[in-house]
Amino acid sequence: MGGLPAMPEVAPPVSPASDAPPIGDALRAFALDELANAARQLAREGGERHAGIHQARKSLRRVRATLALARRALGEPGRQLDGDIAGLCRGLSALRDGQALVEALKRLDPAESPALQALLPQAIELAKARREALLQRALAREPDLARRRQRIQGFARRLARLPWDEVRGKRVARAIARSERRLDKARARVARQPGHDERWHVLRRLRRLRQQDHLLLALASDLRPVAGVPLDEATMLGEAQDDVLLLRHCGSRSPFPPALRRELRAVARERLRRVREAVAAA
């Protein structure tokens, strides 16, 4: 595997008043670590590539969650960087979905349906074949995903130059409070229209808020939301995303034959209904 330069190593300045680095330096170090991990994950080979792409995208999302905490202090360069990272995430979406579909199928409980119990092994094998075909097409265009790893190297250099010393704890706390208010509004809209798919789509904000909560728990626990982010709700919405993914792959361009498609669609719809009812009642 060759040729990519090392990720930039940026040592945070030492704070004379405390052993802990200022919040901006801590956020910068965390984001740089996540970019380094994304590059490492994309460099995985063979059968590990699928999981590597999935993990790389998770790291990139965590970087975006970090940038969002410091959005105002980092200004336009920070917003531009966030947009470029979002573009790379979108470019990895099809490859990520290939892996996510396999994982979603493996998480299904065969007891959900007698017919599914017999058909699930076939569904998993078909999903694996589709995942491999997507990856091989991508590698034919871009061997070793080298251009994307180079882009991540560039993101790290840009991120290291942002004015992290302008980030203040009060601003970070206000950013979290804004995220909580937006999430509360999204929950209220879901409660008013529980059958509206777009309303549920917006609740994905919970994922970012939970990422930020985990980050602040490690770096600055005093800035976290008072009660943290509800794990049960986040878990249920994650399961709902599995069902949405399954439904998306049961349409006209599905990798599954009609009988299997119908069974998966019925199971996913029932699971999605139960999860949404539970979240709406919470």
Rank of each mutant, 00 (worst) to 15 (best):
148 R>W: 11
139 L>I: 09
136 Q>D: 08
144 D>P: 09
131 R>L: 05
100 A>N: 07
119 L>F: 12
124 I>F: 08
120 L>C: 03
134 L>T: 01
142 E>A: 13
117 Q>E: 09
125 E>W: 09
142 E>C: 13
113 S>K: 03
110 P>G: 11
95 L>R: 00
146 A>K: 08
106 K>A: 14
100 A>I: 11
121 P>C: 13
130 R>P: 02
144 D>S: 12
101 L>C: 04
115 A>E: 05
120 L>H: 01
115 A>Q: 05
117 Q>I: 05
95 L>E: 02
97 D>I: 05
107 R>K: 08
100 A>K: 08
94 A>N: 03
92 L>D: 00
120 L>G: 00
134 L>S: 01
143 P>N: 05
152 I>T: 02
137 R>I: 03
138 A>N: 01
135 L>C: 00
119 L>V: 11
152 I>D: 00
107 R>H: 10
107 R>D: 10
132 E>G: 13
152 I>A: 02
130 R>H: 10
92 L>C: 02
127 A>L: 07
107 R>G: 07
124 I>L: 08
92 L>N: 00
121 P>M: 14
111 A>R: 10
153 Q>C: 15
145 L>N: 00
108 L>F: 04
148 R>L: 12
124 I>Y: 03
94 A>P: 04
111 A>D: 07
101 L>W: 00
119 L>Y: 11
121 P>F: 13
126 L>D: 06
93 S>N: 08
150 Q>S: 09
121 P>W: 13
150 Q>G: 09
131 R>E: 03
110 P>Q: 14
108 L>G: 00
105 L>P: 02
131 R>K: 12
96 R>F: 08
101 L>I: 08
150 Q>F: 10
141 R>K: 10
120 L>V: 05
151 R>N: 13
99 Q>K: 12
102 V>A: 04
151 R>F: 11
128 K>G: 04
116 L>G: 00
103 E>P: 06
137 R>T: 06
104 A>V: 03
133 A>L: 14
128 K>T: 08
147 R>V: 15
99 Q>W: 10
140 A>W: 04
117 Q>R: 09
106 K>N: 13
117 Q>H: 07
128 K>D: 06
124 I>W: 04
137 R>D: 08
95 L>Y: 01
111 A>V: 11
101 L>A: 02
127 A>M: 05
93 S>K: 10
121 P>H: 11
139 L>K: 04
99 Q>E: 14
112 E>K: 05
132 E>C: 13
93 S>L: 13
